[in-house]
């Protein structure tokens, strides 16, 4: 499990994911080999049902591969138990989803600070950091609003701030602009771009070629396999 002589943040070899539904087995990922260096910005593209979300969930330690190797930051994810996976998600990963996934009962600040409450950080620091990131994504004047009082673009900014608040190594976006109009989508992508320039590794799934072009590398996936990388 030692860090081998490379500087890959993500190292996947022969990753398979099979959903066992009893009678049928759905092969979501057939054989994925993926290497990502730190500070890369990668776009994942592919038709619906090709396994993009599945791959992203595995990268983000929300799910484990059925087979194959996956090292994240030198750690063999396969060997980790649920608590450790939670710990990794909490410290190293920031998720941004297509449908924002904010908690409706909590206001902007509370939603942003959510990852930090599972770290035992004190309240004052949580609020300070949450405010900082709210300002960073341009929501300084909406801090005490509920998600339902925000536009889609604003909600996605909250989600991005939440993904940033724990200062993760990787930010994963599953069609983060999918629900947004072109203009707002562009604004969101500018934020990602800026984050990448600030040194974050970014992996984004998208169907939109314009969005994909923000990435330095586009990974194309079909039927659970990577078919093209450039």
């Amino acid at each position: 499990m030692s860090k081998v002589n490379d500087n890959f943040l993500i190292k996947m070899k022969g990753v398979k994911k099979i959903y066992d539904l009893g009678e049928v087995k759905v092969v979501a990922l057939k054989n994925v080999n993926l290497f990502v260096k730190e500070k890369e910005h990668i776009s994942i593209m592919g038709p619906s049902g090709s396994g993009k979300t599945t791959l992203l969930n595995i990268i983000g330690c929300l799910d484990k591969p059925t087979d194959g190797e996956y090292y994240l930051d030198g750690v063999d994810v396969k060997k980790l138990d649920d608590d450790h996976l939670s710990g990794i998600r909490n410290k190293k990963i920031g998720f941004v989803f297509q449908n924002y996934n904010l908690i409706p009962q909590l206001n902007v600040i509370e939603n942003i600070g959510l990852p930090l409450i599972y770290r035992g950080i004190d309240e004052k620091e949580i609020i300070e950091k949450s405010k900082y990131y709210a300002n960073l994504v341009g929501l300084g004047d909406r801090m005490y609003h509920r998600p339902t009082e925000l536009s889609g673009g604003q909600q996605q900014r909250v989600a991005i701030a939440r993904a940033l608040v724990n200062e993760p190594v990787i930010i994963l976006g599953d069609e983060p602009t999918g629900n947004l109009d072109t203009k707002t989508g562009k604004e969101i992508m500018e934020i990602f771009k800026k984050l990448n320039e600030m040194g974050r590794t970014i992996i984004i799934i998208t169907h939109d070629v314009k969005v994909a072009e923000y990435g330095e590398r586009i990974v194309k996936i079909l039927d659970g396999e990577i078919i093209d990388e450039r």
Binding site: G60, S86, R89, N101, I103, P115
Partner: peptide, 16 residues
């Protein structure tokens, strides 16, 4: 359910 999923995604352990 979704709230639980969100919390788990951002790092809540089962015991949390």
């Amino acid at each position: 359910t979704r709230e639980i999923g969100i919390r788990r995604a951002v790092g809540a352990k089962r015991k949390d």
